[in-house]
Nucleic acid binder design. Sequence first.
RNA 1: GCGGGAGUGGUGGAACGGCAGACACGCCAGCCUUAGGAGCUGGUGCCGCGAGGCGUGGGGGUUCGAGUCCCCCCUCCCGCACCA
Length: 853
Amino acid sequence: MTASTDITPVPERDRVPRYEPTEIEPHWQQRWDELGLYRTDLSDTSRPRYYLLTMYPYPSGDLHIGHWYICTPTDAIARFRRMNGDNVFFPIGFDAFGLPAENAAIKSGIHPAVWTMRNVENMRRQFRTMGATFDWDSEVVTCLPDYYRWNQWIFLRFLENDLAYRRMSAVDWCPKDQVVLAREQVEGADRVCWRCGTPVVKRDLEHWSFRITKYADELLDFTGIDWPEPIRQMQTNWIGRSEGAEVVFTTAPSDHHAGGEELRVFTTRPDTLFGATFMVLAPEHPLVASLTAPERRAEVEAYIEAARRRTEIERLSTSREKSGVSLGADAINPVNGERIPIWIADYVLSGYGTGAIMAVPAHDERDFEFAKVFGLPIVRVIAPEGAADDGIVAEAFVAHTPGERLVNSGPYSGMPADEGFRAIVTDLEARGQGTATVTYRLRDWLVSRQRPWGTPIPIIYCEADPSCGIVPVPDDQLPVLLPDDFRYSPEGGNPLEQTESFVRTTCPRCGGPGRRETDTMDTFVDSSWYWWRYLAPDKLDGPIDRALDDAWCPVDQYTGGAEHAVMHLLYSRFFAKALADLDIVTEREPFQRLFNQGQILGADGERMSKSRGNVQDPDELVSRYGADSVRLFLMFMGPWDQGGPWSPTGIEGVHRFLRRVWAVVLDPTGSESDGSTVDVADGERQVRVAAHRALQGVTEDHAGFRWNTIVAKLMELTNTLMRFRGTPVAGTSGWDEATDLLLLMLAPEAPHIAEELWARRLEAAGEPWRSIHTQAWPAFDPALVVAETIELPVQINGKLRDLVPMAPGLPQDEIEQLVMARPKVQANLEGMSVVKVVHVGGRLVNIVVRPAS
RNA sequence: GCGGGAGUGGUGGAACGGCAGACACGCCAGCCUUAGGAGCUGGUGCCGCGAGGCGUGGGGGUUCGAGUCCCCCCUCCCGCACCA
């Protein structure tokens, strides 16, 4: 009371609170949640629908920065679409079956279900800190029976419609642990089991498969969907359609072999049939054993054994020297009756085509190399126009050229290659020795997994009556539940096999004893239809609500990692087509528009994984800088489809930016000005122009998800506002307009700070609160974005020489007059004669000159 | 190896075939502050005192003009069918 004069009055502007993201962010997250701002009314048809889907995560335990990189820009899309008037549905869930839970179970004895659900709990909590607008009411968790029973239901429908079937397939097998190994569980160049170091072998097992190849041609057709070209190309190459012919060779009789067996080969070049100088079978080909001459048996068997240890990637490598073994038997070429030797080689795969090829070394690079290594004959049968046929073939002639003709091809010699192709196939067909055929590289989808943590395949093997055989579990007995008591035994194998309570059952057909199928489904089955389940996660009488499917699908926008370019995205397309044929859904393509963002790698440039110890924990960044800064930083890093190594350098920059936004909005009169006087009207115009130009750019950038340039434009606008902060411009309505636009533009990307500042401005203006996230996206004023004067770049011979200020839109002759009058231009034209002057739409002038003679 | 993508300052990156380096990080200088891992102002591709020259992984080409289009090569990333 007495010493009041000693107290320095606190200046007005010091009362502006600091930007404390950790205080405002949880507040708004809670508020949005309470208001149900992002719970989507799926029955609302008054607004255009926008189904925004992002690839659901595996519940590994903790969210890492990669999840933020996928989810937070996607959330910005959701918020932007809402501001543009759409009814946005943006769900999330968990891809909850998979290997890591099994590994944890083996290591610590925790049941995979317990481990998984604990992780789900934790990740739900972490997801909330993103400030993302997920509709949690629609969540699905695929390891829960409510979800996986419908995998089983769909499997049974596939089975009924011949889309699911059993076949033999080779898998990587650890002989010691008695388990099938995933590719990532096979380590090193010597291919040993990750757990025990035992060399891995290939083993043939009976497997369930889905008949995706039935849809191969339809999957090649991307009409009507808006997908990135590289992804379409990768899928197209993966499907690998090739047109050609299946040609029937016959085995020739020999001492050890009676002959007369059919040997079918697939070739894309039946026109080269006369150039086939040997034949190559895959080492796994069923006729190998009977064709092998006794004296060659030891060598052949050793080669087969070696091939079975190789990966497909190795076998197809073109950099490896070709290897192979002759069987000591011949085949007869159906076009000319010639005998050619039969070899086996690992570059021929049993799963592609017929597992056998006719080798035409003159016209196939691999066959050419093989022939060189083993000294086999090379006969040219296609000659480019005008080529001298000297009989020497220096390299395989593969490319098609106009005017190429068949040579050395009996009656077909002289024909153009494409005509020869057709003639040979027609003649073979007439004699029953060949047919025109289309082959695909795509193989049917092997869905069986010999693992305990997946959807049980709903099949029972009857042990009482052989006529029952393989019996599907009736729908009313679904779900086939996973046992909650299985144990990993030290002997290995699939624990389900050892769980009597699971395996022992009764045959649904005869009531006798039966064994359950212990294979579970590939987790890609779960992820091939989950977006439909989001629409009705609690539906009890079927997997998919048809009315909601019709109202909301296909998904308008799908976002997720490019590492899923082929498999997940192809399987999902297959499901849409198969389910449409079964009349379960309507649309045949699941995702209208696709965007694949890049991957965030560890600081070491390697894929982030716990085992590498290069995982970036976002929680730490959030507690230090706030979610908005982390979101903005991830968006600012670079193009979204690029990804890159993680480096926190630079997060300070976006954080500083948000602090400047805070200061500019809450404290526009703060005295950071340099004191020079400004023209208020001009300044007001400048901030309005800056705001509307930013708005134009930001709106455009949103269409292409160019977050980095959006953030840069908002920074530029803020920098402009900073220049006028503390000047009378800050009190004008133009300033207010610019700050409002800044906040509205910032709202999708940095939702908390935008909401907080918006609320404070409303409060200061005495208006009732309304969320910035329900405001309409503003429209820019076209009159403000056109330039009043321009500086026209002038080039001489393509090199920049001058910038000429002028009004925009002048006619070419006036521009030329102004340009030619410039001293710099004159100086550069000294001793030159002008060849021509190129005008580029009033944006640039290039004067082409050469030395005057 | 095959298929797809990417290489731009010290760093992340920007740039309808038309002013290379926007916007940031970092660094340098100055200001402000009792203080700063705070804030503000200015500078910053390389060579050169300068005029100017050189510059987008390397080499060729198309074009009045190329980071951008075409061909060859190098490096890195993603996928290759049981990781998800």
